[in-house]
């Protein structure tokens, strides 16, 4: 794929900043709409992106998001500095959550985020190092 038809943009997320949480996924969504991806592709990207953004907000100190889009696919990478995930297999289970009671109070912590991200992506890769951070790399085919 030539660089010319590759759209790339980077965003940052601040951990714990719930007031602006979700703004990166809203921005990514509007970029994808402008380019003209199919509404169902955008919907999947929006859901996956929002969940991943919330995870960085809730469980990490800070993170960067890299969006690359080509006519064939949308790739979104999340890389954060934070506590990391000790047991990824466990974290991937539906309903598993370490969200605090405070987070649950404001509607988070259903333990469906990671499973939903996976469900909405065509390629999904997650790696993590405890005490350092987590990397999530997803691809949604157009």
């Amino acid at each position: 794929m030539s660089d010319e038809v590759l759209f790339f943009q980077e965003f940052s997320i601040t951990g714990g900043d719930f007031s602006s949480a979700g703004s990166v996924s809203t921005e990514i969504k509007s970029i994808l709409k402008e380019i003209g991806f199919h509404p169902s592709v955008i919907r999947r990207a929006a859901i996956a992106c929002y969940e991943a953004e919330m995870n960085v907000t809730m469980y990490a100190e800070r993170g960067v998001v890299r969006l690359s889009a080509t006519p064939a696919a949308i790739r979104i990478q999340f890389e954060d500095e934070g506590q990391g995930i000790a047991d990824i297999e466990l974290a991937m289970q539906e309903g598993y959550s370490t969200a605090t009671p405070e987070m649950r109070e404001i509607g988070f912590g259903a333990g469906m985020g990671l499973p939903n991200i996976k469900k909405n992506s065509d390629e999904f890769e997650i790696t993590s190092e405890v005490g350092r951070g987590t990397k999530l790399d997803i691809v949604i085919k157009a």
Partner: peptide, 9 residues
């Protein structure tokens, strides 16, 4: 879409 990406940039 290729042209759209170009125009977006």
């Amino acid at each position: 879409i290729s042209a759209a990406i170009r125009k977006k940039k």
